[in-house]
Design a protein around this nucleic acid. Structure first.
Lengths: 343, 343
DNA sequence: TTGTAGGCGTTATCAC
DNA sequence: GTGATAACGCCTACAA
């Protein structure tokens, strides 16, 4: 392993001090054109780039940001990451992403980000998206945000004072219900998510509220918060079809849930949207690769990621940021929704 | 922003020198039980963790590894990352992943990893997976691997001497063809990938070779290397169905390609596998969320990632590593393949 | 067993 | 304009 070239060597060869090299590097104005050129020549010759570890140490900032997501293999989070990364890069920062996979890994990941000296952290935390209060995590976040810019990507958490960015999931789901009602549907099911999950509850409550607001009673047999995976969606759909009050439309927690629902519909030869309408949420590419393509609630994961980075940069710059940033949701209409079948 | 606790403060409060604190931290044996406990107490009290930036600087290694992938939103790469990350973490390392999205971003990403002082880099490079020789990239990799452990995740590249890990794509695709031939298929199409892409060529050649080995001529009208996206798969399938020599089976470059193929089949009311058999590659969760589930060639992205990290760690430890590591491919049979329809 | 001192590669504050 | 010099927070001979 060849040693990396150091600033001292550049300085020696250029016959100047390291201070001057440093000035050339950072574009400091007080350096004569002649020396600047000479030094730059040596720098180019060796393809020298300053050691950012040393630089971070003395500058006490690393130009690095952290992003925590639950699972990158979910295109929803992948999208969030990609956009966050682009924004960070465009702003001269490097984004370190960790996919925690499990709630247990979350605190450890935060610790690692901190130790690696990131200048700020955006968290799409799983732990903070549950209803069961996790004191340890709350405390950790509170403590952390006293030392470091922290932005939560989530619905608001009581007791956490970090600014957050979140989609208007409620509006999106209400719009979805209204759209289905307008198409004549009355037996509308909700599939996916989990009882203890805050996002799932928010979405499900928006669904229920929109129904009751239009005088449609919520049938608990049509509500299946049985998990986040495609397979869970499939199971829920199978049970719905085996049940008594068969729905004419299904609203899904996510694209993934919807894929499971679609799978069962195909298996059972249900025609979509003739026999059953489906609306998913997330509007990732998954909503476009099935047949028919899914009408989907776009909660803009990319924008959420981008905005989180934006807020982080503001905070690092010493600016004030609003305690909450809301991203609008849009209902993207595609082929999976249609008029309710004549009863 | 509260200052972080430093080693000096711990030392002061414990009434020892920083050297002793350091020894406690690193588990050095030569420190009395009494002082160790006292120091550890203070450390725990403040939740002190050593600043890893400073540590990296003096140790001249960061316990950090880099992974470059083309696109994390592709579950294939997400899987690779997740397993690589797990292995790195289990080995006391932190993995920094960059999703380059474009070939242009690749070199910049490598540069950033290097500057951030990673101890080694695993690259699932897009640039190195093309047939058109990219001198710049070759040079960069060669130069890099003289200074830093580098592992390529790819088929071998002439002129690059970094060790690589790659799946036996050829075997997987040959097995897929053989399986279809055994089911009586003769008109077998290939869909997805790109002419200039090395992986695509490897897979397509394996497909062609397996066919000719069994005396089946390759019909160029059945080969569509028209892109990597699901949509490209859909277009190819649409063209196949509009063509003269309609296939009874399709082998797809990837799960994504296969999703597009499936989409068109559903649209055109083709029954799978009765009218058409489909085999995909990658065996990500995509292959399990459609109906029917896809028979798929598993090229074990997770194992590739894990193995790449393993090799990197070996190299860092000064060990010798084999120039090439091959991962077997398996054909996972599911519902999308069946006997050829009677002609 | 513990402390002192020097250095890791930069940057920033002074003088000159 | 430029160059010493002192940090930044930690590790490691070497000395005690």
């Amino acid at each position: 392993m060849k040693q990396n070239v150091t600033m001292q060597q550049i300085a020696d060869e250029a016959g100047v001090s390291t201070a001057t090299v440093s000035r050339v590097l950072t574009g400091h104005p007080l350096v004569s054109e002649a020396t600047r050129e000479r030094v730059q020549g040596i720098i180019d010759k060796y393809h020298y780039t300053p050691n950012s570890v040393a630089r971070s140490l003395v500058r006490r900032c690393s130009n690095t940001l952290g992003l925590l997501v639950q699972d990158v293999s979910n295109p929803y989070f992948a999208q969030m990451y990609i956009h966050a990364e682009q924004h960070a890069t465009a702003s001269g920062y490097t984004l370190m992403m960790f996919s925690t996979q499990s709630q247990e890994g979350e605190q450890a990941s935060v610790q690692r980000l901190v130790r690696h000296g990131v200048d700020g952290i955006a968290m799409a935390s799983a732990t903070l998206d549950t209803l069961q209060i996790n004191e340890a995590m709350y405390g950790a976040v509170e403590e952390l945000s006293a030392r470091l810019p922290i932005v939560l990507i989530n619905d608001p958490v009581a007791g956490c004072h970090a600014p957050f960015v979140a989609a208007r999931q409620d509006e999106g789901f209400a719009a979805a219900v209204n759209y289905l009602l307008a198409l004549g549907h009355r037996r509308i099911a909700f599939v996916g998510g989990q009882e203890e999950n805050r996002s799932a509850c928010t979405r499900c409550r928006a669904y229920a509220d929109a129904l009751t607001a239009h005088g449609v009673a919520v049938d608990p047999r049509l509500v299946h918060l049985n998990g986040f995976e495609a397979e869970d969606g499939a199971q829920a759909m199978a049970r719905l079809l085996a049940g008594e009050n068969i729905p004419t439309a299904v609203i899904c927690y996510s694209d993934l849930s919807a894929m499971g629902v679609m799978q069962v519909c195909h298996q059972q030869r249900l025609r979509i949207p003739d026999d059953l309408s489906i609306i998913s949420c997330d509007n990732t590419y998954l909503s476009r690769i099935g047949d028919p393509m899914l009408t989907s609630i776009d909660i803009h994961p990319g924008e959420q990621g981008r905005e989180a980075i934006h807020l982080l940069l503001q905070m690092i710059g010493g600016g004030e940021v609003p305690p909450e940033t809301r991203i609008a949701s849009d209902l993207v209409i595609r082929g999976s929704t249609g008029r309710a079948p004549e009863a």
